[in-house]
Design a protein around this nucleic acid. Structure first.
Lengths: 215, 215
DNA sequence: GCCGCGACTGGATATATTTACAGCATGGAA
DNA sequence: TTCCATGCTGTAAATATATCCAGTCGCGGC
């Protein structure tokens, strides 16, 4: 994907935030208003550029026909403040493979009303965990994982990572040599060794909580 | 959530599928076409019904303004006697002294705002888990356990039991002979054998959910 | 029978939304 | 200097959408 300019990144981030907040992509007018443009056409121009660069896909003559193409090179968490509407709870935005990494599509499945103060660190959204690689720390298949977007992760923290096409939950470790190890918390699963120079590793966020419904 | 008719369920499913396929909810016309209606108004009527039943939320005059709410199934309970005061969240119960009712006001440590529909079965209160006897099923020391008061427990269900002076979380099994076994989900812990004739075993409630904050 | 509810058809209308066209300004590259 | 990408304003037209109104049909309860 071609690199985005700061302005274009803000447009992209707003689309993402709107998806999470409202369940649907924004219109040109909504983008213009949010970014302070007087004309919706400014937003239209940005969208064309984003589409040309491969960051999004546009549906022709389709209202709110904007799709995020996976793999935002940057963690995009510059202005998480955009996420503060709170009143309706958290969006469940997809599935995370916590085992053999499975393809994760970014979309909103539903919303769950969990207040900001339930987790020590407020979550920005929830992901449905798939797989059993983190059962050792009580994160089971089907659990909802509270995720807070972040731009950095410290040794030993549990984070949500994107490795190429896959999204996975693992415990993060980085050695002095720069090698990264994504550690599973289940003896049946091997750790994942990553060379940040070679592999495309993106931090999607930090795990801040778990919610499970017992049937 | 009120129960949906088969037709209504098909509409709901289509909304979900469209969300997954295109990244945005469908329009009335798209719903009508997909389900074979000649008029978009048929879809509109269905949407109104779904909204009334709480399955979705509709945005006014907003294109594709459809949000899935939470399909976790069961209607909110009617008899939430334990939920005495304000709907300001669930009470977190701390240490319970021997012989005292678990729901006594003095045991309430704080309140956590978790909506009724977060767990498939709404919880009446939250209990702070002590010990690691249930780590095998992802219930860890320090977790908040959602508990629903109940008068009976079936084989295999996880419940909160009072055994004399102690309150414990275990999986329940009753044999044909009437002997009760409270099973730990951790190899390091032995099961507890109970003779209901002899021992004082009280069911405080059923485990309906888990909430954990990751630091 | 009468009524409410679930499931529709058909048509009309007010908005919402996309998109094209015409410009303007800036800054870097050829 | 000219060309081109970025980043905008403003207006207008063409569509896409939501929503209202007026009916129809069948079914189960009162």
């Amino acid at each position: 994907m071609e690199k985005l300019t700061p302005k274009q990144q803000r447009v992209y981030d707003f689309i993402r935030d709107t998806l999470i907040d409202t369940g649907a992509p924004p219109t040109r007018a909504e983008i213009a208003q949010a970014l302070g443009f007087a004309s919706a056409n400014a937003a239209q121009a940005h969208l064309r550029t984003l589409a040309r660069k491969g960051a999004i896909e546009l549906g022709s003559r389709r209202s709110r026909g904007i799709r995020l193409v996976n793999n935002s090179g940057e963690p995009a968490s510059v202005d998480t403040a955009a996420n503060d509407d709170t009143d309706d709870g958290l969006a469940v935005i997809g599935r995370v493979a916590a085992g053999e990494p499975i393809l994760a599509v970014e979309h909103i499945e539903r919303r769950v009303r969990i207040a900001d103060d339930v987790f020590a660190t407020p979550a920005d959204y929830l992901l449905t965990v798939r797989g059993d690689s983190m059962t050792g720390v009580g994160i089971l298949d089907g659990d909802l994982l509270g995720v807070k977007t972040a731009s950095e992760v410290h040794n030993g923290q549990i984070g949500v990572f994107r490795l190429g096409e896959d999204v996975t939950v693992k415990r993060f470790f980085k050695s002095d040599t720069g090698a990264v190890r994504l550690q599973a918390e289940n003896p049946a699963h091997a750790d994942i060794q990553v060379d940040p120079e070679q592999d495309e590793l993106v931090l999607e966020g930090l795990a801040v909580g778990v919610v499970r419904s017992i049937h």
